[in-house]
Design a protein around this nucleic acid. Structure first.
Lengths: 150, 150
DNA sequence: ATCCGATGTAACTATTATGGTTACTTTGAA
DNA sequence: TTCAAAGTAACCATAATAGTTACATCGGAT
């Protein structure tokens, strides 16, 4: 994959759970969510499992099993979601050690790591400006031909 | 690879070219640069080729061939380098289309694309604050045991 | 107490991106 | 004319992620 689509799928799942709750009530199952995302239910369960560990959703097992939001979408930002799924770093230093006998090879890694830490924080700060309620509102604002299913 | 290391290798190559120019003069070859980065010369030529297309470096062929900076490192930011190597997007929407009969599936992609465009711009704005001269200065500031080679 | 639909999770395969390698052509100043 | 290095195509290796299958576990409803 070119970029990382996990944040997209996570936002999709969370807003789907909320819309399902509004329209039909009750818990959302990984199978229904996967039907909307167009992926395998296990992919959804893995992703929601990490969000549950971070306190964003709760799961129930046994009969009437499924997923519910742990708090309103207004109180959940894309930063919360991003951090809950613990994505790989956006930038990396050399995959194999550079030549440490060269001043550049010796000193460049910590310098670049510091730069990348600043960039990652800028990413998180930007994601913090967007709540999942914003996402759901903008999604529903786009005209939809039927809106029969979800 | 977890993250993208191309920006690291690009910064390494550019600062190496400058240091080589200061110490030995003349052009830098992809083979010498690759020796410091610890990779294959072709990897370096591919990367510097894209930076040449963006006007950051110049290459010479034939005898006395090699690479030189097109402008001082003071006038080159990590944003310039990042954009010259045209990296893949940091975030992506679903790899396969979501269910378009669902309001979420129908509307979420443009919403997330807009969010990701904001994030990418935040990344570039942060990278713009760091020049390659800053990188070289910080690299050389780290104590190095011998500094015999580079 | 039993049922049964959904979670939880391991293990595997498929796909894709990237880096690394080989081999070869082209260049152009000495 | 030489020759060291750029330029580049084509291929292989590695790693990350998504997708899939299979199955144990759970726990409210009946």
């Amino acid at each position: 994959m070119a970029g990382n689509s996990q944040l997209t799928v996570a936002a999709h799942a969370l807003t789907w759970i909320e819309l399902h709750h509004r329209r039909e009530g009750g818990v959302a199952t990984s199978e229904r969510i996967a039907g909307s995302v167009n992926t395998n239910p296990v992919v959804i369960r893995r992703l929601l499992g990490r969000m549950r560990d971070a306190g964003l959703v709760r799961s129930r097992r046994g009969a009437e099993a499924g997923w519910v939001l742990a708090r309103p979408l207004e109180d959940m930002t894309l930063r919360d979601v991003y951090e809950s799924i613990e994505p790989a770093p956006l930038f990396a230093v050399h995959r194999s050690d550079p030549n440490l006998d060269c001043p550049i090879g010796f000193g460049i890694r910590p310098v670049m790591r510091l730069a990348y830490a600043r960039v990652e924080e800028a990413v998180r700060a930007e994601l913090e400006n967007i709540t999942l309620a914003d996402v759901l509102r903008d999604v529903l604002a786009s005209s939809h031909p039927t809106e029969l299913e979800h």
